[in-house]
């Protein structure tokens, strides 16, 4: 058959793949530096720890069984809770922000988006240290509260779960705003007017029209915030102290402090499983509510 027939679209299932080789470097990269190490970690998770921290290559499921210990369960539950809370707060803060940006004059939008992304210009670690200065006993927040006479004694903010969630929300808010912006930008403002005209209150407009039609952005934003939140370890490490250990800290602890690589690997895989389950759940939900793309 003629290979340069542009008039007929390629038949489904018979994808011509003349340009597939362009993907080869990327595939090679992913294979070498992602899949291979992942397989290695998976293998290690079924090995056991040697007396001095080495790996003993004997097949065992003991690492996974050890994770049923209530201590790990508590850390896992805490991680899920922090990540969910962070996602919810990011959504509440991010949606109005994204909506405002998407509905502002076209020439202002790039500037506003740049401002949202501005924090990324500074190293994440440095920014987290900055939060320590803001939240500590003689920090900015306490100084302000004391000066205004709102509190008599400095509040204990740093090294609390609150500090962890503040840090996570701060760190991942842009990941929520960007996909939401794209979704809202695509939402036809006339649909909002139509709903308003058809007796919908502002809240009903939001729940009946805006949310369903921006669902792809909402799902994208939530996934992008939830995944790094649940696996984060710098934020809980610096802002949370010992009580707020998250699953990321546990992995770091097992690898670097206890030097129990097999257990650390097992925890890593459990984390991956949770993230995957969460993503599948999100997308299932999104598939049930057709977005504006399916509607057109």
């Amino acid at each position: 058959m003629p290979s340069h027939d542009l008039s007929s679209p390629p038949k489904p299932g018979q994808s011509s793949c003349r340009s597939c080789w362009l993907a080869a470097p990327g595939l090679l990269w992913m294979g070498l530096f992602f899949l291979a190490p992942l397989a290695l970690v998976f293998a290690i998770s079924f090995a056991s720890r040697g007396t001095y921290g080495g790996i003993v290559w004997e097949f065992t499921a003991a690492n996974y069984l050890d994770l049923w210990h209530p201590l790990y369960g508590r850390i896992l539950g805490q991680s899920l809770w922090y990540a969910s809370l962070t996602t919810a707060i990011c959504f509440s803060l991010g949606f109005p922000l994204a909506y405002m940006i998407a509905r502002s004059p076209a020439r202002w939008q790039p500037v506003l988006l740049l401002l949202v992304m501005l924090p990324f210009w500074t190293n994440f670690l440095v920014r987290t240290y900055a939060w320590m200065i803001v939240l500590r006993q003689d920090g900015l927040v306490n100084g302000l509260l004391l000066a205004l006479g709102i509190v008599d004694a400095p509040l204990e903010l740093l090294y609390t779960p609150t500090a962890v969630v503040i840090g996570l929300v701060y760190g991942y808010l842009p990941f929520m705003v960007l996909p939401l912006y794209v979704a809202v930008e695509r939402l036809d403002p006339l649909l909002v007017e139509a709903a308003w005209d058809l007796y919908a209150s502002r809240w009903a407009v939001f729940t009946q029209v805006v949310v369903p039609l921006t669902m792809p952005g909402i799902v994208g934003g939530c996934v992008l915030v939830f995944i790094p939140s649940i696996g984060s370890f710098i934020t809980p490490d610096l802002l949370g102290g010992a009580r707020s250990m998250m699953i990321g800290n546990l992995i770091q602890h097992e690898y670097l402090v206890v030097r129990d690589w097999p257990l650390g690997s097992a925890v890593s895989f459990v984390l991956m499983a949770i993230v995957m389950a969460a993503v599948v759940l999100y997308y299932r939900h999104a598939a049930r509510t057709p977005g504006p793309l399916e509607g057109r």
């Binding site: 036809d188 005209d197 919908a200 209150s201 029209v209 369903p212 399916e294």
Partner: peptide, 17 residues
């Protein structure tokens, strides 16, 4: 939403979902 009028939009503005 509190006016007794309804608008038929030029582009129809039907809810695609």
């Amino acid at each position: 939403n509190r006016r007794p009028v309804n608008l038929v939009f030029q582009s129809y503005a039907l809810f695609p979902h």
